[in-house]
Amino acid sequence: MKAYSIYISGVGGQGIIKTSVVIGEAAMKTGQVVVMSEIHGMAQRGGGVSTELKIGHAHSSIIADGTADLLLAFEPLEALRALPKISKNTRVVMNTSRILPFNIQGSELPYPPLEDILEEMCSKSQEVKALDAVKVATQAGHILAMNMVMLGAALTVPGFPLDKKTLMESMKANLPERTVPINTRAFEQGFGTFS
C-alpha cells in the first residue's frame, strides 16, 4: 500500500515542525510506520520552513514532485513555493493570513493578491480548503495555536490516515500542559470549519 505523503510549508515560528511531530507520533501510536524530514532554511529570520512526512512504508521521507497527498500550507506565499509537490490528486489546506517575507518588505515586488494565489492552487489540486487560521487561533485564545487550527482542518480531508482521538492525544502529549486548553479549542475550531 502506498504511503500517505504530507508536505507542510510555512514560515519560521508558525509551529510547522511541532505539527509534524504531533502527526508522526499519532501515526506511530496506531502502529503505522512514519518517516519525516525537515528544512529549517532561515527560520529564525522569518524564512521558509517545510517538513515532509510519509505515513506507511516508504524508502525515503522525501516527497517527489507531484506526489503529495496533502499540502498543509501555513502561509499563502509558501503554498505557492510548494506547488511542485502537488498534483490534481493532492488536497490542500491553506491558511490565508499572510506574512510578508523580508525580501519583499520595502521592495518593488508586490505580495501576490490572495485571490490569485487561491486561483493558482485550485487550478493545480483536487481540493483547496482555505481559512484564516490566525483569526481562528486568536478567537480560540492565542495566535500561536494557529498550527493546531491547521491540524484540525487537515483532519477533515478525505483519506487523512489518522483519527481525531489519536491526534488529540498526541497533541496533548507534545505541547506544554498549560497550553493544552487553548490548543484543544483551536484544533476543534479548525476541525469545525470544514466538518
Rank of each mutant, 00 (worst) to 15 (best):
I17M: 07
V128A: 07
S50Y: 13
R185C: 01
A3C: 13
Q32D: 05
I23Y: 04
F194D: 01
Q105L: 15
P101W: 06
R81S: 09
L114Q: 08
G106W: 10
A154F: 08
V149W: 00
V34M: 04
L71Q: 01
K165I: 11
V134I: 11
E75D: 15
M168D: 01
Q32R: 15
I17K: 01
A82V: 15
T184M: 00
A153V: 02
L83A: 04
Y7N: 04
V11R: 03
I117F: 11
E188I: 01
L100E: 14
F160Q: 07
V128Y: 07
G56C: 05
T30S: 06
M36V: 12
I6H: 03
F160D: 10
H57C: 03
D69A: 01
M42L: 11
M146D: 00
G48N: 12
Y111M: 09
A186S: 03
K29N: 11
I99A: 09
A26N: 09
Q14D: 02
K18T: 13
E119H: 13
A64T: 03
M36G: 15
M36R: 09
A186M: 06
M94Y: 03
P110H: 13
M168L: 12
A58P: 02
G192E: 05
K135W: 00
P181I: 13
I39A: 15
S5G: 06
T30I: 10
E169F: 07
I63D: 02
F187D: 00
A79D: 07
T90S: 11
L80Y: 13
M148P: 00
P176S: 13
S9L: 02
T138L: 12
L144Q: 08
L167S: 01
V93L: 03
N147D: 09
V34L: 09
G190Y: 00
P84D: 07
K54I: 06
M168C: 10
K85V: 15
H57S: 09
K165M: 09
E188V: 02
L70D: 03
M168H: 09
M28Q: 03
T30Q: 15
T51E: 07
K88F: 01
P76T: 08
K165V: 11
I8Q: 05
R185V: 00
V136R: 00
P110V: 09
T19A: 14
L162Q: 09
D116P: 14
A154Q: 08
M42C: 12
V33N: 06
I99Y: 08
T96W: 13
I117Y: 13
K135C: 10
